[in-house]
Nucleic acid binder design. Sequence first.
DNA 1: ATAGAATCGGAGAGCATTCTCCGTTTGTCG
DNA 2: CGACAAACGGAGAATGCTCTCCGATTCTAT
Lengths: 193, 193
Amino acid sequence: MGDDHGAARPLRADARRNRERVLQIAQQALASDGLTISFDEIARRAGFGVGTVYRHFPTKEALFEAVLLGRIERFVADARALATAEDAGRAFFGWFAAVVEQASGNQALCDMLDSGTAMPVRPGSTLARDFAAALGRLLARAQRVGAVRADLTAEDALDLLRGCLVAERGARARGGAVRMADVVCDGMRPRSL
Amino acid sequence: MGDDHGAARPLRADARRNRERVLQIAQQALASDGLTISFDEIARRAGFGVGTVYRHFPTKEALFEAVLLGRIERFVADARALATAEDAGRAFFGWFAAVVEQASGNQALCDMLDSGTAMPVRPGSTLARDFAAALGRLLARAQRVGAVRADLTAEDALDLLRGCLVAERGARARGGAVRMADVVCDGMRPRSL
DNA sequence: ATAGAATCGGAGAGCATTCTCCGTTTGTCG
DNA sequence: CGACAAACGGAGAATGCTCTCCGATTCTAT
């Protein structure tokens, strides 16, 4: 356990400003360069020494988490909001497409969701589980009304989601993920008889 | 330019054996651990010093290429063989599924095809282009007979292929790629009217 | 203004990775 | 068998990354 339990003493004004700036630059850097960007590079872009950045975030992982967790939490929240939507099929496909679209503008988010590459979420965190659970609920409801083929597992749907995001990685960021999502969503529908 | 133009002097018998062993171990290591495995680790697994391995392959990239190029060339050859198949739709979907299935047992192949992560093919090589072209031809023919929706580009199909392979990466290698390919192939079919 | 605490900066420790160098060992040919 | 070229082994140079440490600097409260 650290030493800043609950609300520690307030940060000095300049420190608060600097922390904010680091967060903002890190946000940009992660969006454009992905999870592989180095800590030094972020400090450099923000115009601080690495020591300063480490003062605010004890670890590279912690910084990345601070930038990215909110985004993913929002996805989970969106899914919860849709959990009782009228049209279960629309809810599932809409959420799926929305996640792909929003994540596709953000390298780091793609890297993270596609996983396989490092996942900057602490082992203890239930976030990955929450995300999967949220998707699972939306999927189950959509299947119950026959909007999605019944043999699709939640794991499959997650794979499909990750797969779409891959199109947006590296140099080729040109909207491929959204086009993929269209095809993939079609594929998830029950085969018309 | 190196110094081994054309057929240099034949390797000493033990050297040839060792080279073969390195290739074989590297093959296994790449299949199970992917492109991120270190050169030292391969040397260790093969039971050689790194110097020895470097004697045979001037660079990490060269070794990986020696192991993987053949695999990809075979995919390209398969595509060529199917270029005049009777059922163009069957040819395209069959090839697509076959590539996914074969690559899915091989971490390195997944890493490489999905790209975004390092591509161990020399810039000069036309292999990536050849692969894309082969897929493009199969796709075009399938579209001409109405087996694949017309608005799909070759780039899209490549993204979709890469996307399927992502399911097989990291710890979770459990056949997800093949299941994904099924859904994705369905999605590529024209929307039934 | 000034003392004292909070914050900053960046050199460098520690580690992993690719690749080089050269003394030592081993195969091959007469 | 013996000599010489070929091949081996692994220490270590060079690079790049995360993270630590502490003297120098800047803020803030009085």
